[in-house]
Design a binder for these strands. Structure first.
Lengths: 188, 188
DNA sequence: GAGGCATATGCAAAGAGTTGCATAATCTAA
DNA sequence: TTAGATTATGCAACTCTTTGCATATGCCTC
């Protein structure tokens, strides 16, 4: 299970609470691994039981107390070993592409609308990643080794968003063509 | 659950057996939805129980008999309705990208090897999709409407593969740099 | 001071997907 | 003729993920 390893990866540099991890899974690492807070809290408890994480209660003023977790030596070791093993890919599943196999003049307007929403989401994500890149990764060759790995992951995210945006523009044009044809066919 | 709808989509034009569906989920539709034969056979039985598919036993010579499934009128109707609803995205999960967050001179050779394997897989898939495109989708504007939707999905697959291949080349160069540095550091 | 929001954590059930195993017919090649 | 590949279907256990619900603190605003 890589959720555990994704969590440990997020804890490489920082000691974080479940809540903070949940938020970070919504942004940077989240492009490659999504998880709900229920999953994360459970995984944290499991990992602590296995001795790969250690926790500390942190009382807070003005907010509920929290529990922060950090990697143990055993955790770092386990993570290193995991990296050397085979990777598992769970291909993304996206209803929208399946829906395109069902394209008709009837559903084209709906698909166009979904496409516009996607484009907005991808655009925001791309902007976020580009901000991060410009702020922290302008000179990848000068970065410490591990940061260069993160840079590559970030770059993959950026390229992916760009590709989807370009595709969406083409798809929108084609859908508009389908709709225009349907209108002129109805008028003749 | 969109697996059901992906199966129904695959049955829009053809009546197929579970075995044939399993294979088709390995290729064209499979870029957007992966499923094991166990999942598919179960889904087929469920969909038939719901009256969305109908089945027919087909005795075969030289091979075991098979059961082929086709959409019922209710199935076509349900599929059309599904297309008009909201789409769900399950972002892809890929160990390899998480591993890049753990990059070190120690694991760089392993990641390089995984990268090469990926590049080969993506290359083969890209070649497959390009063959399909050239054979059936050379003039998208001239295609019937639904085929144009399939063309767009295919195009998304092609673009995606191309992007990953380009990224993999960059990533390989960077990893080789990391490894070269490690060697020269050890020699000094 | 009541309602809404952000912080912070958790349980339980249901749904989706993976993994391992099992069966059986037929064809092909050693 | 026996071993392995291909076609064809299925069960059961397990893991992973989603969804719905629950609780509690403390802030800010109306």
């Amino acid at each position: 299970m890589a959720l555990n390893h994704a969590i440990m990866t997020a804890l490489l540099d920082d000691r974080l609470s479940g809540y903070e991890l949940t938020k970070s899974f919504d942004t940077s690492l989240g492009f490659f691994w999504k998880a709900s807070h229920q999953q994360i809290y459970k995984a944290l408890r499991d990992l602590e039981k296995q001795g790969l994480l250690e926790s500390e209660d942190v009382p807070q003023a003005g907010k509920p107390d929290k529990v922060i977790y950090g990697l143990t030596a055993a955790g770092r070791e386990a993570l290193e070993q995991w990296v050397l093993g085979d990777s598992r890919v769970t291909e993304s599943k996206d209803d929208m592409f399946v829906k395109f196999y069902n394209l008709s003049p009837n559903n084209a307007p709906h698909l166009l609308q979904e496409l516009v929403e996607r484009r907005e989401q991808d655009g925001m994500r791309l902007a976020l990643y580009q901000r991060i890149k410009e702020r922290h990764y302008t000179e990848p060759g000068a970065l410490p080794v591990r940061k260069r790995g993160i840079y590559l992951a970030l770059l993959a995210g950026i390229r992916h968003c760009e590709t989807r945006l370009a595709w969406a523009r083409e798809a929108e044009a084609l859908l508009q063509g389908v709709m225009a044809e349907a209108v002129s066919a109805a008028n003749s």
